[in-house]
Amino acid sequence: MWRRAGPIRLHLAAIAGRRIRPPPQPPTPQATFSSSASSSSSFHHNLGAFRDSIGARSRSLSNQTGGSGDGECWSCGAKGVFLSCGSCRSVQPVDPAVDYFRIFGLDRGYNIKDNNLEGKYKDWQKKLHPDLVHSKSEKERAFAAEQSALVIDAYRTLSKPLPRALYLLQLEGIHVDEEKTINDQELLMEMMEIRESVSDSSDSQTLEKIQSQMKRKVETWSNSFQEAFDKGDFDRAVEATQRMRYYERAMEETVKKL
């Protein structure tokens, strides 16, 4: 899932650039990272360079879109169209500046509870699905294929806490290198014990107990993520995503055995 982010990261460049931050602020997060070498090695923080490289592009983007992010329909010229035209129903080309939260009409943030993501997802697919435009021009069919895929990615990313957390970090310009070996002995020792007890237990009662423990731990670390992320403490936010990944993994194992 995280890997899918490849093409999205290009969009992100534009998004990050469009976000308006007071110029004096940018150095702050970077200072946070250099102060804690141990955990900063687990991911690359490239916010500074990121912003520099996209500055020019972001300006031209906001000119194009008139600042609102919504464009003009390529087919009928209607203003303020988003993904699909409200007047002529033509599917619009993918706008790289649109982030997943906007697709679902949400403010960018971790806590998106009770927002009927699935319903909104289905509504979009009723407008964007490639099957709906099979008789239209090749151009529009291509738009529909891309938009529809984008909405699927958006739904998959936002509907689960961990991908949503990683996506938010990505929007901040933080790439978590999940392939890097970690040495957090406390976590690893705990995980070794949990995974051993999962593999050793065969009765559903024990497995269910472990499962609910893992669920609670995922929730606890999910809350820690939100807290850390909101404060801009990205080291702790990244740590929280790692914890979530491990406890979720253990939970999956119990599911397999139950």
């Binding site: 999940e178 392939e179 070996t181 040495n183 002995q185 070794m192 995974r195 993994r249």
Partner: peptide
Amino acid sequence: GLVGAPACGDVMK
């Protein structure tokens, strides 16, 4: 030696 890879939630001893 106890190490882990967060990508898949692996633990290796």
